[in-house]
Every structure is written in structure tokens, then in C-alpha cells.
Design a protein around this nucleic acid. Sequence first.
DNA 1: GTGGTCTAGACCACC
DNA 2: GTGGTCTAGACCACA
Lengths: 123, 123, 123, 123
Amino acid sequence: MPWVFDPHRPLYLQLAEKIEAFILAGTYPAGAKIPSVRDLAKEAAVNPNTMQRALAKLEEDGLVITQRTSGRFVTEDKKEIAKARNRLAQEEAMQFIMKMQKLELKKEEIQAIINKMLGEMKV
Amino acid sequence: MPWVFDPHRPLYLQLAEKIEAFILAGTYPAGAKIPSVRDLAKEAAVNPNTMQRALAKLEEDGLVITQRTSGRFVTEDKKEIAKARNRLAQEEAMQFIMKMQKLELKKEEIQAIINKMLGEMKV
Amino acid sequence: MPWVFDPHRPLYLQLAEKIEAFILAGTYPAGAKIPSVRDLAKEAAVNPNTMQRALAKLEEDGLVITQRTSGRFVTEDKKEIAKARNRLAQEEAMQFIMKMQKLELKKEEIQAIINKMLGEMKV
Amino acid sequence: MPWVFDPHRPLYLQLAEKIEAFILAGTYPAGAKIPSVRDLAKEAAVNPNTMQRALAKLEEDGLVITQRTSGRFVTEDKKEIAKARNRLAQEEAMQFIMKMQKLELKKEEIQAIINKMLGEMKV
DNA sequence: GTGGTCTAGACCACC
DNA sequence: GTGGTCTAGACCACA
């Protein structure tokens, strides 16, 4: 299954999000070694430069740590991972609420729309 | 109060969103005449072409109707406005939930974070 | 029932087409006097200048004749009316076929689509 | 052969139609790379901005897909192309029939004029 | 080099 | 005066 991207958004951002998802989901657990840039790039069918940029972003975000000689690793600290997840979730939720309030929706309406949508979903 | 923009996103989209917010909030009520492209451009300190593009988007979305020589008007149909508000809210909510699920949050967690955030807000 | 227009096309053209339809349909029969520009303009809720322009177009097309003192009349010559109808129909049909051929449709396909569409219509 | 345009209709629309014709005719086959905006603009002797607008319209219509940095491509999906062709043909046929009915032509007359015209054509 | 955006300034049809 | 279109030329992010 080849990776699939939205051509209207920067490729490196989408790569970063994907790998981030692997980390938060435990596919790459805390402390695990991350495949080399070359391997990742090959798997995603992407230029290594682009993958490099994606990993650089993850390092900025504190999810990934580079050991100069042995490669990149998911941060050891599980709290760090949880913190990252929370931070991202907070940011998204904040932006979401701001947008909804621009649309003149009240608290209850926001909660209602979220609850309804979650109720309709299988998972 | 000068209009302020995020330099990372297209200006015309931000203009469209701003005017859309005015319509949904009733600042430009149903059927009202919208200021001319030139006036709006002057107020936003933006090139008329850019403002034109923003308004063209609003017309695509059905919120605004163009009378070729007499100006642009907010759609008479209040249902149309309500529909647009709902459509936008649904889209935002959907995207938000997708993002949260990528972060491996469960239903209850999503609801909790929303409820908590809304609870902390004054309004 | 107020006249209704497409704001994206010149008003005077739409007026001309409407009056032309009246003539071809016999609502204004051959030789009949056409209401004054003022009356027509009032009925259509349109600026007299605009209606004037519409009638000028009809005169160009040979459907209407101006008697300088007594007003405008539909051409006496029924053949002239029939001719105008045929000419317009021919032009439209020609343009239509050209467009369809640009879409790489074959003769039979063009006929099929027309026949099918006519078959589905009530009238 | 320099491209030739009707000065009464927006240039960008005519450009879009021209390129669309190339796609439907197979000159730009499914999946093929479309020349860059700059090249196309040079060939048509038109400002790159104008050509950009034309291509943006084709993307809206689903005939063309943009890969942000590597160029634009005709959609891979041949069904999509066929669908676009059908949609356009339907629209044209509908408009044509409406116009003919405004001219008070009956079903049989419409069919007759089309059949006669197609019969006279060589191809 | 690719697409995308923005400005400045001009011209047009229409009413 | 209104919206709409076009050109010329510049700058940007991305790969």
C-alpha cells in the first residue's frame, strides 16, 4: 500500500504527521530506533531530502532524538510522548473552538455537533 | 483597528473568511448591500484584485449574489445563510475529529477536552 | 409576476430575447403595435435606457420597425418573422453542433442525446 | 497557427475550453503531463496569470490534477474524463433545447433541423 | 523549475 | 460608479 498524499499541502508536513501518528499509536514505541532516512524515504517513495525535513520537524517537537552516531530514536520518556499528544490535542481543540465561535455557535451547539458526529461513527 | 493577517495563508482566503464571518454574525444581514470591491479593498488595505478574488469565492459558496452594475448583496435567503453556517461547522467538526483520532484519542477523551475547554471560557 | 433575470448576462440582451420570444410566439403578432419604451420599461422594472437598447437590437435583427411618429411595430411581413425564427434556429443549431463535435461526439451520439432529452420532457 | 480568441468572452474561459478540448480529444491523454503554466502562456501568447486561471478552472472541473512542484497532469481516471465529457454534452444539449423551445420549435422540428444539418456535413 | 499569490495599473461593458 | 478581466512584474514555498 503506497503512501498517499494531498498534493495541496507540503509533503514534508504530511510525512511528519504520519510518522508522528506511528509514534503516538505505539507502532514506533518509546525508545525505539526509527528506520534510517534512506529507508523511510524509499518506503514512502519520496526524496530523502524531503524525509529529512520531516524528521527535523519531529525533533523540533521533542518526539524524536538524534544520536549522532547511531541514528534517530523515539524519545525514551513516555511522559514526553503523552505531553506531545496532549499539546497537539489542546492546540487542535483550541483552534476548533475558535473557528466554531466565529461561526456564532454557542457552547451547547458545539458540544451537540461533536457528540452527534461521534455517535454516528462506527469506532 | 487595522485588519491583521497570517502571512502563511493566502490573503484572499482570509479576507473571504472575515467577510463570511460578518455575514454569519449579522453585521451584513440577509439582503444587505456589501460595500464595493474598491471600498472593501481600501478598508482592508489590500489590492482590489485580491478582494475581488475573495468575494468571488463567497459567491461560489452561495453566500453572496452579484448584481452586475449595482453591487454585491448578501443572499436574501436566510435559509441559505443557515445552510452555509451548518455546512462550514460540519466540515470543521469532521476535520477536527479526524485529527483527534490520528492522535489516538478516544471518543470520551475528545468530548472531555472540548467540555473542559468550553467550561474554562468566560462566554 | 416580476420579470426575472440572470445577473451575469447583460440585461438588455435578456430583455431583447424576451420580447423576441413574444413576437415569435404570436403574443405580439405581425403588424401589431409594441408598447412604448416607457411602458415596457415600467412593466419590466427596468431603466428606460436599457429597454431602449433592447428594442434597438430587435430593430437590427429586422423583427421590429420604427415608425418615427407613431411608435414601434412588429414587422408586417410574416415571412420576415418566420425567416428570423429560422435564422436564429439555424445559428443555434450550428453552434450547438460545433460544440458537440469539439467534445468528440459522433453524429449518432448527438442525435441520441437530443432524442433522449426530448423524450424525457413533458411537453 | 496562432491561437485566436473572441474578444467578447473572457480569455481565461476560452483558454480553459481549448485545453479541455485537447484532453477530451486525447491530445493530452489520461495521466499525461501538461506543459507548465509559463510554457502554455508563451505558446498562447497570453499572460501567465491568465493561463493560471484557466488551469485552475480545469482543476475545479476535475479534469486536471496539480502536483505542487512537479506540474499538472491530466487525471489518470479515464472514467473521470468520460464523465466530464458527458456532463458538458448534457449541459450544452439542455441549453440548446431550451433556446429552441423559446423560439417555439416543436420536438420534431428540433430533431429535423439537427438531422438535416448533420446530413449535410462531410464528416 | 513548478505552481501560487499579490500588487499596481489599466481597460471594458453595463446601468 | 459597479463588477470583471488582463497584463506586467515581483516574490514565495516546495522539491
